[in-house]
């Protein structure tokens, strides 16, 4: 069973934080506590599915947000793998991870990522997404911090369920607001129409463009939306 004192201490950190004025959902609080307590440089929680659909539930800052977006762009990465395999994925020296995630690694290393710890968020038999912890320094987490991270992953699961059930706070849980990756979907629709191809095909072409240009997928999508990028460039 989970150590009660550890659970209690983290629980208290989370609930104390949740009383702050900038409260915008429990998932966000868990990310902030993860950064402060586990000693990582960034934390993010994403809802994931077996398909392409993802939703960013919370990130501790723009660096972590960028790394989550990169996993969305690439369609691979530690969080994607932790979700698919239902096991945590720890990479303590990213520059030695070889060809593991071709779409993710180079850009992530370029952004300063040195180690990553991804936990699947599991409620019973159901997997909701991942808690991804990012660090600029290579090396393993001490067992004590890793234990904290595991407990925070449990709290993150509860946080998602509470956020999804509450009408206020978490914008991702509100069905009538556009999702974090909305621009990519809109751009895929535009491209599909212009080239008379399927939306899935359009998405793959956007992704390929992002990969070859080194620009984030959201950036490519916004160039399409603003009509700064000519759509015939996406013809085969």
């Amino acid at each position: 069973m989970v150590d009660g004192r550890r659970y209690q201490r983290l629980w208290r950190l989370v609930t104390a934080r949740a009383r702050g004025r900038d409260f915008s959902g429990w998932a966000g609080v868990v990310c902030v506590v993860a950064v402060e307590d586990v000693g990582v440089d960034g934390a993010a929680i994403s809802l994931r599915s077996s398909g392409r659909a993802q939703e960013l539930a919370a990130a501790s800052g723009s660096w972590a947000r960028g790394l989550e977006e990169l996993q969305y762009s690439a369609g691979d990465g530690p969080g994607v793998e932790a979700f698919t395999t239902a096991r945590p994925v720890f990479v303590t020296e990213l520059d030695r991870a070889g060809q593991r995630w071709p779409g993710f690694l180079d850009t992530a290393t370029g952004l300063g990522l040195a180690a990553v710890f991804s936990f699947p968020l599991q409620a019973g038999a159901v997997r909701l997404g991942t808690l991804d912890l990012y660090r600029r320094e290579p090396g393993a987490l001490p067992a004590d911090r890793l234990a904290d991270a595991a407990v925070l992953a449990d709290l993150a699961t509860g946080a998602l369920l509470i956020d999804a059930a509450s009408g206020e706070g978490a914008s991702w849980a509100q069905a009538d607001l556009p999702g974090h990756y909305d621009d990519v979907n809109v751009a895929a629709g535009m491209l599909a129409t212009a080239l008379r191809i399927s939306v899935d095909d359009a998405f793959l072409r956007l992704r390929a463009r992002a990969f070859s240009s080194g620009e984030p997928l959201l950036g490519i999508a916004r160039s399409v939306l603003d009509r700064r990028l000519r759509l015939d460039l996406f013809l085969d």
Partner: peptide
Amino acid sequence: QMRRAVDSRDVIGQAKGILMQR
């Protein structure tokens, strides 16, 4: 429910793009 919300937001975005382009 969450999955449905995330998925339906995806297709609503795509449909928006289709109409914008048309």
